[in-house]
Design a protein around this nucleic acid. Structure first.
Lengths: 172, 172
DNA sequence: CCTATCATGTAATCCGTTACATGATTAT
DNA sequence: ATAATCATGTAACGGATTACATGATAGG
């Protein structure tokens, strides 16, 4: 029962199936307008991961008889247990923010003040654009947990938009 | 000149060398107390990446004659150009926040209100701990660009600590 | 001198990304 | 009908992570 340890993608798939996304495409749709904004799962992952979980006995796969003949997944009891345990378990891993703009700022010694300001303005704009997207969807999200996650994203974008805005006007 | 496209790690290494970190260990040290907090580079990456960049002609490698005989890197002109171009180039990739706590919240339908509160409290605590770390180091960071990045981290941790704190007290 | 830890790598596996490719539906 | 796009995958490659392993240096 090769207990290969599960990755975040594994749990995401288990969670998506638990929320009713029984096909890979449905998983893609469900993530697209919410958690996918800051933890993007390429669709190929959502197609590749379920077979692994089937192999581990955490998912069950049914093949449609007609039409697209797509693979329809459902949770097994061990799968449900694995998901629940993960949800309850305190998370220890440090969150990672992989922001290229911050990386450039970190290494920006070689840039002039104007170039730093340009970077900051571009970053501010990007964050405001993302903020606008979140504001436009937040009211349409019915699942309260999903809505809470969108709110977190909203707060984050606001924070960073302000950070860059200040940097654009205040020289280092 | 196999123009394999450079990854963020590539530019990080170029940037670190530009800032005077001429050995892999020095790179590790320089990142550890600043950008490494939210974009962690395992030391093996900092040892594995430079040879690739040497291969591409972006770094030059000198081997120490004595002692540890370590590899000492320096920027070539193409390497410096690549770094500068990257720094000036507007960044298009969306920043990614990979936060397991948020992922659990997203899938937290199956959790009770108490369990959500427990998750939120644990997350708040983790963010406050990180916040304390940033506060303890921010004054000691001399490089203004590094300091700005630490400030960004500080704002982020504060934002998220508050987000989780509110969630812990307000039922969904 | 001996030990602990600092420092420097290597190896192997596997996941994630990117691109390719094709089948089904819908719109015109 | 035909084109466009929606939907569903596969393949290949490379990078990232996780362990393993060993050589130097400093401290006792």
């Amino acid at each position: 029962m090769s207990s290969a340890q599960l990755t975040p993608v594994s749990y995401a798939v288990l969670g998506l199936v638990a929320q009713g996304a029984t096909t890979s495409y449905a998983m893609k749709q469900m993530t697209a307008k919410s958690v996918g904004y800051f933890w993007a799962f390429p669709h190929s992952q959502l197609y590749a991961e379920p077979p692994r979980l089937v192999e581990l006995g955490l998912l069950d796969e049914q093949r449609e008889a007609e039409g697209r003949r797509r693979r329809v997944y459902s949770l097994t009891q061990p799968g449900r247990d694995a998901l629940e345990n993960w949800l309850r378990e305190p998370t220890s891993e440090q969150p990672q923010i992989r922001d290229t703009g911050l990386l450039k700022l970190f290494f920006g010694d070689g840039l002039s003040a104007d170039e730093i300001a340009a970077l900051a303005q571009a970053q501010e704009e990007a964050h405001r654009a993302r903020l606008a997207v979140y504001e436009s969807i937040v009211d349409g999200v019915t699942n309260p947990h999903h809505a809470a996650v969108v709110r977190a994203g909203l707060l984050h974008e606001r924070t960073f938009a302000e950070f860059w805005a200040e940097l654009a006007t205040t020289p280092l």
